[in-house]
Each structure stands twice: as C-alpha cells, then as structure tokens.
Nucleic acid binder design. Structure first.
Length: 347
DNA sequence: GAGTTGAGAAGCTTTACATCA
DNA sequence: ACTGATGTAAAGCTTCTCAAC
C-alpha cells in the first residue's frame, strides 16, 4: 500500500489529544517558558478554563497520554507539548480504550471480549444490526436515508425525555431503515436527558467506543449502535472544535505576552547600552556576561543574581534552580483547557 | 435568525485476509 | 511448507455539511 501521508494532515486528522498544528505551537511556547511541575491532575468535565498553568507534563507512554486526555475529556494534553512528531502521529492503541470499564453500564461487561474472540474485519458486526435497538425517540431521524432523501416520518419525538417509550417496535434493521425513504420530512431525533446524560458519562470514560461498548450502550439506551456512534463522532468533533477555539485564544495571549516581554527586553538592552557608554569604567569591573545562566528546566536565559552571601561563599554554582513563577522568567500565560462539551440546552 | 445537535457523505487510515512469487 | 510483498474489503475515524429543532 502506498503511504503518502502529509504530516499536517495527520496532525489534523488525529489531533484529538494533540490538537494539531496550533496545539503544537502553543505547547512549544509553554514548554519553553514554564518550569517543570507535575502534570495537572485530570479535571472533571464540567470545569471550564481551570486555573492550570500550561506546564509540560513528564513524558508518558503514548497510550497513557492519550488516555489522560480522553478520560478527562481533555483533547489538549499538556504532555503533548513534549511529544515528538512520531508521537503525534498515531492514534492510541485500541487496547487503551477497549480495556477500560464503564461503571455506568451496570451488569454489562462491555470490555471483556470472550476469550479468543476477534471480530473478523470483513464480517459485519451483528451487534450493530441489532434489530430491537431502536430509540423510542429515534424511530424517525435514524431512519433518514441519504442526505436530501426524505425519511419516513412516523411517530413523534418525546421532547421531555424522561422515560424512553417502549423500544419495541423498531424491529427494522439499518438496511431496512435506510431503504425506506418514502415521502415525509425528516424528523429530527432529540435524545432524552437520560440518554444524553449516559452518553456524556460514557464520553468521559472513553471518547471512542469499541463495538462491544457501542452495542452495550445502544442496548442500554434503546438506541441503535449507529446512533451511539454518530453521537460520539459529533461529540468528538465538537469538543475538538471548542478546544481549538480555546487554544487559539491562548496562543493570542501567549503572543501578546511574548511581544510585551520582547519590548521590555529591548528597552532594557538599550538602557544598558546607554549606561555602558556613559560609564564604561563601571562595567569594566563587572563580571563578564558569561554569568548569565540558563534555566535548566525551561532553558530561558536569566540574568545573574546579584552577588549574595552564598555566592561569596562559593556555595552557588551556575544554573541554579529556577525560581518559582515569580522569578526572572517572566509571566507565563496560563493556558485554559476546554474540558466541557458543547453547551446543552437546559430545556 | 442564530445556536445546537443528529445524521449523511467523502476521504482517509488501519487491519485482516487472500493471493502470488 | 514457509515467507514476504501486494491487493482488497471492511470498519472506524475526521471533517464538512445539512437540516430539524
């Protein structure tokens, strides 16, 4: 097979968890500017733009990095900033998500495949065609065929969403459904609150589903596996979009901060030059410029600290530990992390 | 009218399997 | 019989888009 993969394309395609180009940039900045600290713990999904510094986390195995993001609903993994392009390149290994448990699926072990069971690639997933799994609400929209083709309009949607009506009915396979495109406008399914809540919970656990999880979830929610799949696809796409917006804002702030710092440093340089012209003899007695140190953690240049007692005693070497956030490294913008899904209507 | 959201389509990668030298 | 290369089909994913609400 011919593999002509555009790197940019790859980054975009598999950017969830890494966020592609823009993300890499922001992370590079953050990596260069921030001192080392432990990685922030995964936050609850409902938190938006938490006060977390964009610090690079210690490199993790790829699957772990991905999972960190996925489990917390984070598509922007801080650790991605330390990843090399090869790490950015691939999706997580399927096992990373397939082995996770879904506590909300009571009594359904969707994660444990029967020993030795591997679904043949070519075989159609019978679970996906589960005939009885049709949403009480979805008997309509899920029936819609191709775009533009009017779907069968049958039944109404339970907007309230409390209890799904009896699933029964359905009985039609996807094939049947898609085939019946006769007349009537396409009614749109509205997932019930309960269904949405369970899906959200599930998404917090895994942002992708394996076939078994999908089937179990569909069964539990009285939806078709295809509907669950679509919901997850949309959720991923929209979460990523939100995160991209957040990252964009963050990058703007980074840019402003760096620009301001650049101006300040240029002014400083100009002042120092002027000073040197005015009083060259003073500078002759000063230590050579090699006393500038590099912060070992963030590799930023720091002016040498004024001679202190420690230094006089020879106890301080060059390149000492970087001061905390308020040190000479300047302000580091705090990159917000979008961890919440698209706002849901509260109706 | 704008925002949200379920869903279809296109295009891509991955993977299992078959075939062949 | 075994092995590596190659082709193919199916499934899943992302992205874009539409349309109903």
């Amino acid at each position: 097979m011919e593999m002509m993969v555009n790197a940019t394309d790859q980054e975009q395609r598999y950017g969830d968890g890494h966020l592609g180009l823009g993300l890499s940039l922001s992370l590079s900045i953050a990596t260069a500017a921030a001192p080392v600290e432990p990685a922030p713990a995964p936050r609850p999904i409902s938190v938006v733009a938490p006060p977390v510094c964009s610090l690079p986390a210690p490199p993790l195995p790829q699957a772990a990095q991905w999972w960190n993001g996925a489990a917390a609903g984070l598509f922007f993994s801080p650790s991605a900033g330390t990843m090399d392009p090869s790490q950015l390149e691939r999706k997580p290994p399927p096992a990373a998500c397939h082995d996770m448990t879904m506590p909300f699926l009571r009594g359904i072990d969707v994660n444990r495949a029967p020993p030795g069971e591997t679904r043949p690639r070519g075989a159609s997933c019978s679970e996906d065609e589960e005939p009885g799994a049709s949403s009480p609400n979805s008997t309509l929209s899920s029936l819609s065929g191709k775009r533009g083709a009017p779907a069968r309009s049958s039944g109404e949607v339970d907007r309230d969403g409390g209890t799904p009506r009896a699933a029964g009915g359905g009985g039609g396979s996807d094939d049947e459904d898609s085939g019946a495109g006769s007349g009537g406008s396409r009614k749109k399914l509205r997932l019930s609150k309960d269904q949405a809540a369970v899906l959200e919970e599930s998404f917090k656990e895994h942002n992708t589903l394996n076939p078994k999880q999908k089937a179990a979830l569909a069964k539990q929610l009285n939806l078709k596996p295809r509907q669950v799949e679509v919901w997850f696809q949309n959720r991923r796409a929209r979460t990523k979009l939100k995160q991209t917006e957040v990252d964009c804002e963050f990058l703007k702030r980074c840019c402003e901060t760096l620009t301001e710092e650049n101006r300040r440093l240029q002014r400083e340089v100009a002042e120092l030059r002027a000073l040197k012209l005015v009083a060259p003899h003073h500078y002759a007695r000063m230590p050579p410029p090699t006393t500038l140190t590099i912060c070992p953690s963030c590799e930023r240049l720091a002016a040498a600290a004024p001679p202190a007692a420690d230094e006089a005693a020879g106890r301080v070497g060059r390149g000492g530990a970087a001061p905390a956030p308020t040190g000479p490294w300047g302000p580091v913008p705090v990159r917000p992390v979008f961890v919440d899904g698209p706002a849901r209507r509260s109706s």
